[in-house]
Design a protein around this nucleic acid. Structure first.
Lengths: 243, 243
DNA sequence: ATTAATCGGGTTGTCAGACAGCCTGCGGGC
DNA sequence: GCCCGCAGGCTGTCTGACAACCCGATTAAT
């Protein structure tokens, strides 16, 4: 077997992980296959065995490989993975990003419904404060768009907190922060168009209102309306092109 | 700082990861804090530095800690995590499991809507075959419940495949296989009640029908109806108690 | 006295070698 | 033909070492 040689980048183990996972993705390594021994990999990559071990330990951590003492390391079945992780390249492609957005939206929508049943007065106050921040941001010609963008993220997080589902919150925070990393510039340009920002705020205000009323069905509907629209608005932008 | 001592369990590095993450969860380690040096951790845990390094490399892999050469390793901010992972303990608690189920359902519901727009004749055939397997399973008094359970999982996976969102598929497969691990026995008992199984099959048949019609709104509605009901049926079981 | 250069200790990242415990596969004895 | 034992290879762990790096303190220069 042959792996992409590595070029002293950020971290040796990380390079090896990348090399192995890409070999896996390319189908060169298939579930059930045995990896070369650590020694063999070490010499092939030109590194010490400790480095290879560190790389393999990460793959084990994700359930991508399983190792047996005295035998070797094996590629696990796909359904045995124990972590959900998105490779940084996914965020570079427009199509992938929109898919991730849909994934996130699905969770956010359900969480909004839960929030409508678990809300307290303090929760509502918090969300209304975020809405106010959005409205204030419109007037701020300098950093208004950035403030709006941040406020939108905070609203999502606030809703997830209200829903009292820490797994959903963790998931949303993780996926959202990574999306935000790549999307900030485009999204900021988007909200710079004041009429779009006003529409978005109005949508979110209705969502908060539904949560306030304790109406999960309406919360779900309003959440879907806003977050799907937001994704659509992003998708429609010509400058949000494939990279 | 004091960490839980470890007792030669499954894997030394894994124990250390568990010890560190539990310290993090308990609030003893907070974002921005510096970890003890690898040497210090090694002596404290009574292991070699390589073992500690392997543990820390896993935490780095998840974005939970970041290390700087010549300085040390630091707990990262929560929003810097790059992996979504559920600790095995979560699946032991009834409440946690239901939350995870809601998380999964949110994704499945959105994915069903996408599937309704992307379906092909072959996809429909596949899903109808799975439905047939469910109906056949009712007659099988020996392994019928197990067959039904597996078929339900396959239907979810099939829908995710149709929707052409590999991230959602990965997510669902991961969370579902872990839920299934803990839930199989209860779910199997559930579907043993034939009238419940018949209801569930009917619900899923309507979902498939909506996908076949290419009606995303209906698909969403039917999906929510079935999967929320399924979660409710599980929650209602008295023997699905806290462990 | 203030600033600049230097030095030393501590830390991570990597390397090399070693050994225990385990497993597989082969060959020899029955 | 079947079973036992052994050798070799593998993973898991340990030990010691060194380079590169960072920080703080001490020292030197202005």
């Amino acid at each position: 077997m042959k792996f992409k040689s590595l070029e002293r980048g950020p971290s040796l183990p990380q390079e090896i992980v990348a090399s192995l996972t890409s070999a896996l993705f390319a189908g060169e390594l298939r579930p059930g296959d045995r990896l070369p021994s650590e020694q063999a990999l070490a010499t092939e990559f030109g590194v010490a065995r400790t480095v290879v071990r560190e790389a393999i330990s990460q793959l084990k951590y994700d359930g991508i490989v399983q190792s047996r003492v005295g035998v070797g390391a094996f590629i696990a079945q796909p359904q045995e993975r124990t972590a959900f992780r998105i490779s940084p390249e996914c965020f570079k492609k427009r199509k992938e990003l929109l898919k991730l957005l849909r994934l996130r939206n699905g969770v956010v929508i359900e969480v909004a419904a839960d929030a409508a049943q678990a809300r307290s007065n303090r929760d509502i106050a918090r969300m209304e404060a975020i809405l106010k921040e959005m409205r204030d941001a419109i007037g701020d010609s300098d950093h208004g768009a950035e403030r709006h963008f941040e406020a939108e993220r905070q609203l999502i997080h606030a809703i997830a907190k209200v829903a009292d589902n820490e797994h959903a919150l963790n998931f949303i925070v993780m996926i959202d922060s990574q999306i935000a990393e790549k999307l900030r510039s485009v999204a900021v340009k988007n909200t710079k168009a004041t009429e779009l920002a006003a529409v978005a705020i109005e949508e979110q205000a209705r969502l908060v209102e539904a949560i306030k009323r304790g109406d999960p069905v309406a919360a779900r509907e309003k959440a879907r309306k806003h977050y799907d629209n937001a994704a659509q608005r992003l998708a429609d932008r010509a400058d949000f092109a494939d990279v």
